[in-house]
């Protein structure tokens, strides 16, 4: 581990293909990104855009049939994850990378009290005694904002509300003090009120513990103010990536704009027609010629249909996008 290396996670050219009866599905397509310690990266995209598969690839939890072409390189904390034996990978996964999934009810074991579920990984990975692990579990439950944590140790997941369950799932993910937290749609299954609380909690914990975080969501609305950098994914590719404020103020992709327009806003007058993207996301096995968004893009021209735009950035800027005809100043929201 070198101190000079500020990047905790670097992903280079990661693709994931999954063979299926209808031909190989390219779930993740040449994704490269880097995440510094203590920073948050938001991955935004519709269902099927490959964001969850990307997370699974980083964690080494791909389905058996998935193929990762050789050019990919995932480096975590100075180690190349691709070259590690399974055992070490499993150790990193539990200890240094924490995961929070969309549905806390299915990610928690229904027949084990939550206290034990939180304590177990600490005993396993950190070798804590059961009394010490229990103590830590209480601390963690308190840290994620669960009142009367000692009493809740014995509760089963079904006895808790959705928000509480997600807090428990976060406590579990934090148990071994991970350096990276992957939150895959952590609030999609929750009420809006609880959503804000959970996102605020994640942000606070991340700052306190100097964790890096990958926040995966389909709602562009929740990333503002919560992520340092935002990457928009479409059809397995990253199509736009920029510091979050830059992304919102100087949006370049038509797709990003469309996602932004689809969000109902509480400050808008009632009955505003929502911007909806026509058409369907491309089928997973669809032939890739040209820009994958071209069939749904109002701006698409012949070039978009024949030539794939590379993910490139303008000189001197930290804003990459993959579009031949990026949004002009007037077209931005």
């Amino acid at each position: 581990m070198t101190v000079s290396d500020t990047h905790l996670l670097t992903v280079e050219n990661l693709s994931v293909t999954i063979p299926s009866s209808a031909g190989a599905v390219r779930a993740v397509d040449r994704v490269s990104l880097a995440l510094e310690r203590g920073r948050t990266l938001a991955l935004v995209g519709e269902s099927g855009s490959g964001k969850s598969m990307f997370c699974r690839a980083v964690m080494g939890l791909l389905p058996r049939s998935a193929v990762v072409p050789g050019a990919a390189r995932v480096t975590f904390d100075g180690r190349d994850l691709g070259g590690l034996p399974r055992r070490e990978l499993a150790a990193i996964r539990g200890r240094e990378i924490g995961v929070v999934l969309q549905d806390p009810l299915s990610s928690l074991n229904p027949v084990i009290p939550v206290g034990r579920q939180i304590a177990e990984p600490m005993r396993y990975h950190l070798g804590l005694s059961s009394a010490r692990a229990r103590e830590r579990a209480v601390e963690l439950l308190a840290a994620v904002g669960i009142p009367q944590p000692e009493e809740r140790l014995g509760a089963y997941p079904h006895q808790l509300s959705g928000g509480m369950r997600q807090r428990v799932a976060i406590a579990m993910a934090l148990a071994c003090e991970p350096k990276l937290l992957i939150a895959d749609e952590p609030t999609t299954a929750l009420d809006v009120t609880v959503q804000a609380e959970i996102l605020n909690l994640l942000g606070r914990l991340q700052r306190e513990r100097n964790m890096a975080m990958v926040l995966v969501t389909h709602d562009l609305g929740v990333v503002a103010g919560r992520a340092h950098e935002t990457a928009v994914m479409y059809a397995g590719r990253i199509v736009e990536k920029a510091p979050t404020v830059e992304l919102f103020t100087r949006m370049r992709m038509h797709y990003t704009r469309a996602l932004f327009d689809a969000i109902p806003r509480i400050d808008d007058p009632p009955h505003r027609e929502l911007g909806a993207i026509g058409g369907q996301p491309p089928g997973p096995a669809a032939q890739r010629v040209g820009c994958p968004f071209a069939p749904r893009c109002w701006r698409a021209e012949e070039r978009c249909r024949t030539e794939e735009p590379p993910l490139a950035r303008d000189a001197g800027e930290n804003h990459s996008y993959a579009c031949w005809f990026p949004l002009s100043q007037e077209e931005r929201p």
């Binding site: 009142p147 509300s161 928000g163 509480m164 809006v192 009120t193 959503q195 804000a196 609380e197 996102l199 605020n200 709602d219 562009l220 609305g221 929740v222 503002a224 103010g225 919560r226 979050t244 404020v245 919102f248 103020t249 932004f260 969000i263 806003r265 509480i266 400050d267």
Partner: peptide, 24 residues
């Protein structure tokens, strides 16, 4: 409280969740 909890997309908007509901 419900209104305050709604996220407002945009870089300059305040974060949702100020004046949040306490308790369960």
């Amino acid at each position: 409280a419900l209104i305050n909890a709604v996220p407002r997309p945009g870089p300059c908007q305040p974060l949702a969740g100020t004046g949040m509901l306490s308790g369960e």
